[in-house]
Simulated scan of single mutants.
Amino acid sequence: MNDLPEIHKQVVGLIGYGKGRATTVSYISKLTGFSGVTVRRMVSEAVVKYGAPVGTCNEIGRGGYYIISNEDEKSDTVRNLRSRALKILMRAEAINSLPPQEQQEFYL
Results as ranks from 00 to 15, higher is better:
Ser29Gln: 05
Ser69Lys: 10
Pro5Ala: 05
Asp3Leu: 15
Ala22Asn: 07
Tyr50Met: 11
Ala52Gly: 00
Tyr107Gly: 01
Ser29Gly: 04
Ser97Ile: 05
Glu71Met: 05
Tyr66Arg: 06
Ala46Lys: 08
Ile95Tyr: 13
Ala85Ser: 14
Ala52Met: 09
Tyr65Gln: 07
Ser83Ala: 06
Pro100Tyr: 00
Ser29Met: 04
Ser97Lys: 09
Gly33Ala: 07
Asn80Asp: 14
Ile88Tyr: 09
Pro100Leu: 07
Gly64Cys: 11
Ile95Glu: 08
Ile7Val: 12
Tyr65Asn: 11
Tyr107Val: 07
Val39Ser: 06
Ser29Val: 06
Asp3Ala: 14
Met90Arg: 08
Cys57Ile: 12
Gly36Phe: 07
Gly20Pro: 13
Asn2Asp: 15
Ile28Ala: 10
Glu105Ser: 15
Val25His: 00
Pro100His: 00
Gln103Glu: 06
Leu14Ile: 01
Thr56Val: 13
Glu105Trp: 06
Ile60Gln: 09
Tyr65His: 13
Lys49Met: 10
Gly64His: 03
Val39Asp: 03
Gly36Leu: 14
His8Cys: 06
Leu4Gln: 04
Thr32Trp: 12
Asn96Trp: 08
Leu14Pro: 07
Ser83Val: 08
Ser83Asn: 14
Met90Cys: 00
Phe34Ala: 02
Glu45Lys: 12
Ser97Gln: 11
Thr77Ile: 03
Thr56Phe: 07
Ser83Gln: 11
Ile7Thr: 08
